[in-house]
Design a protein around this nucleic acid. Structure first.
Length: 104
DNA sequence: GATCAGGCTCTAA
DNA sequence: ATTAGAGCCTGAT
């Protein structure tokens, strides 16, 4: 299958994350039917097309932390801000997964 | 926390 | 086509 299809599947899962909840990369990968492709999820998000309704900021790593690379300080800021705007408490780039992890 | 190893895709040579 | 390096990860040491 093409990488684009792959991206579609992943995005399709991500857009189903309800407001006020977050999901981990591995979780998204799993629900997209890609058990071990957590890293690919991150990659796809990084290469996002311009025409997206993707709440990428609701996707964090398995430890409830924001995994953006050092270069993306701004992106990280935006992500925390967006989450905070949705009633998700983010403290120093960390989220309480107990409360906010998405469980379909 | 920090480190290691495992697992998987992408890009470039 | 094969090889090598790197990446917005994960689970265990």
């Amino acid at each position: 299958m093409s990488n684009h299809e792959l991206a579609q599947m992943i995005l399709n899962v991500i857009i189903q994350i309800p407001q006020g909840k977050v999901a981990s990369y591995g979780q998204v990968a799993k629900y997209a039917g890609l058990p071990k492709h957590a890293r690919l999820v991150g990659r796809v998000l990084g290469q996002l097309p311009e025409d997206h309704d993707i709440p990428w900021y609701r996707v964090v790593n398995s430890q409830g932390r924001i995994s953006l690379k050092k270069l993306d300080e701004k992106g990280m800021c935006i992500q925390t801000a967006k989450l905070l705007a949705e009633d998700v408490v983010v403290i120093d780039g960390k989220i309480n997964l107990k409360k906010y992890q998405w469980t379909p």
